[in-house]
């Protein structure tokens, strides 16, 4: 009997607490940058496309809603020829972001993606690309990778020695 009354009292007191419910959509919630909402593809600090079409996000995706095709430019830089996320399947688990070795794919605090037609939830690369580096301002995969691309020859990556001179007779 006593515990019943105590509970009722406790509920009653809540009427005077600070409200956490906000009047959405008039009022917007403040979401942390790590919130898992709409997915974007970011660019590296030099403005280049970050995604290297490694397919890791696609393979880790539990709903298999990411697909892409890799291609390369004439200097060997790999990037997705096309990149598609079917948001009508995505469960915003963030595994893709965790798997991505280049910080290209990122989840953002935007969750307002409601659509009347499912097909409008299919985002292509041009819908996903943003113009900046997103949450990770500094990282540039190509600066640490061993593959040469336009503007970065062999031996010019971070912590790389100059290419071995095969004709040298020195030991």
């Amino acid at each position: 009997m006593f515990s019943l009354l105590r509970s009722l009292w406790g509920v009653f007191l809540h009427a005077f607490h600070k409200r956490v419910t906000i009047q959405y959509p008039e009022e917007k919630a403040v979401l942390a940058p790590r919130y898992r909402g709409r997915i974007v593809l970011s660019r590296d600090p030099d403005g280049g496309e970050r995604c290297v079409a490694c397919n890791l996000c696609a393979v880790v995706c539990p709903t298999d809603c990411i697909s892409l095709q890799a291609t390369e430019d004439e200097h060997g830089r790999r990037f997705p020829e096309w990149f598609r996320i079917n948001f009508s399947r995505c469960i915003f688990c963030g595994f893709c972001e965790e798997a991505c070795p280049t910080y290209a794919i990122q989840l953002t605090p935007d969750f307002e993606m409601g659509e009347f037609y499912r097909k409008n939830l299919v985002y292509e690369k041009e819908d996903l690309m943003i113009s900046g580096p997103g949450k990770y301002p500094d990282y540039n995969f190509w600066r640490v990778a061993g593959v040469a691309i336009g503007g970065k020859a062999k031996g010019e990556a971070e912590r790389e020695a100059a290419p071995t001179d095969l004709h040298s007779l020195l030991p």
Partner: peptide
Amino acid sequence: SGRTSMLA
């Protein structure tokens, strides 16, 4: 991968 997306 991509089962629910490749034909989307």
